[in-house]
């Protein structure tokens, strides 16, 4: 996986829960592209269309709280979300996102410092976020080496396959 990305922001508030990211009634869908059609539809029915070209999602506190459904980060990833930045994450969502190869970084102050439409560049290894539109940069919480390794392999399954084959 590319450890540096650029993209435009779509911003949401605090406590974006996984029922809002992907309602329970869609959990019987298996195809991730089908899931993606419903990502965040209860907050913004046009979100899947807006995210199509690749966006950086910015959230407030406790992003991804609630259910352990991995279909929530999957739906975001297949909608076109390149990464999620938030003040804090619910822990299961955080792990799920990393495990399916969707980068997530905690960055204090990010939700006040960016607006929807801003262009950001994110360096996952350095934990550096630059708001190109406003000429400001931030230092996020650096991801531990264990997580960076999973991300650079593209997810936990790819990481595990590589480790098992190495043995």
């Amino acid at each position: 996986m590319n450890m540096k990305i650029k993209g435009k922001v779509i911003k949401f508030g605090n406590n974006i829960d996984t029922d809002v990211i992907l309602p329970g009634k869609y959990l019987i869908l298996v195809d991730p592209y089908e899931l993606a059609k419903h990502a965040l539809e209860s907050l913004d029915p046009a979100f899947p269309e807006k995210a199509k070209k690749g966006v950086i999602l910015v959230g407030g506190k406790n992003f991804g709280c609630g259910s352990s459904r991995e279909q929530a980060p999957l739906a975001l990833k297949y909608t076109g979300v390149k990464c999620v930045l938030a003040e804090s994450f619910a822990r299961i969502f955080f792990r799920n996102a990393i495990n399916i190869g969707l980068p997530v970084i905690e960055c204090k102050g990010i939700s006040d410092a960016v607006e929807t439409g801003d262009e950001l560049s994110v360096d996952f290894e350095a934990g550096k976020i630059e708001n190109i539109s406003r000429g400001k940069s931030f230092q996020a919480n650096k991801l531990p080496p264990l997580i960076l390794e999973i991300l650079s392999d593209g997810g936990l399954i790819e990481n595990l396959r590589r480790r098992i084959n190495k043995k």
Partner: peptide, 23 residues
């Protein structure tokens, strides 16, 4: 996510996602 229920029995129990369960 409600796997944490089993903490009632003095176990360490926590919710994970599907990929992690596969691992």
């Amino acid at each position: 996510s409600h796997t944490c229920t089993y903490g009632a029995f003095g176990a360490f129990a926590t919710g994970i996602g599907s990929t992690e369960a596969a691992a």
